[in-house]
């Protein structure tokens, strides 16, 4: 059996790049992402899986990376906020947030954007109710959600047209 101090080797793909990292068993995925890989766009806003600031995509699903062990990421394909816009452009969700003033302090924003990706994947044309329910896993303290809902609505209507 392994000892507690032992580091486990984890291999996964993140934002398209393959990585192998040694991690203590107790290391949370969010800390691995932020500290070992320097991808600090993923934030930690709580410790009980309520706020969603740490939301990333694992194998195409939005998850709270503060509630996943780094060692569990073995073989996973992870996308963080930094993976959406490798260049200097904004992706459509980010652009909609800018257009509709859907962010203020910006701390919840990366997690919110990652959740919106999931929401639009599940429901390409969500109603306002669907949007508000679909963002239940993310807390924003600045915007009152009003403009976040507007931003998502703008994407939904585009979805219907196409």
């Amino acid at each position: 059996m392994s000892t507690r101090e032992e580091r486990h080797t984890v291999t996964f793909e993140i934002n398209g790049a393959r990585k192998t990292v040694a991690a203590e068993a107790r290391r949370l995925l969010v800390h691995l992402i932020r500290e070992d890989l320097g991808l600090t766009g993923t934030h930690v806003g709580c410790d009980t899986s309520q706020c969603g600031a740490c939301t990333v995509e694992i194998d195409g699903l939005a998850v709270k990376s503060c509630t996943v062990l780094a060692v569990s990421a073995e073989g996973a394909s992870i996308t963080t906020i930094e993976g959406l816009t490798p260049g200097t452009d904004l992706d459509p969700i980010q652009a909609a947030f800018h257009e509709h003033h859907a962010l203020q302090c910006g701390f919840c924003t990366p997690g919110m954007v990652m959740s919106v990706r999931q929401l639009l994947k599940d429901q390409p044309a969500p109603s306002e109710h669907d949007i508000r329910r679909g963002l239940a896993g993310n807390i924003c303290r600045c915007t009152g959600y009003h403009n976040i809902v507007r931003a998502v609505e703008s994407l939904a209507s585009k979805g219907e047209q196409s």
Binding site: T40, G41, H43, V44, E82, T88, Q94, H98, H101, G106
Partner: peptide, 21 residues
């Protein structure tokens, strides 16, 4: 006007204290 500070925050390139190492 739309905000000039949005890009870095949207791209996950904001720099909050806990990001400093």
């Amino acid at each position: 006007l739309r905000r000039r500070e949005d890009f870095k925050l949207l791209a996950g390139k904001g720099r909050y204290v806990d990001d400093i190492k």
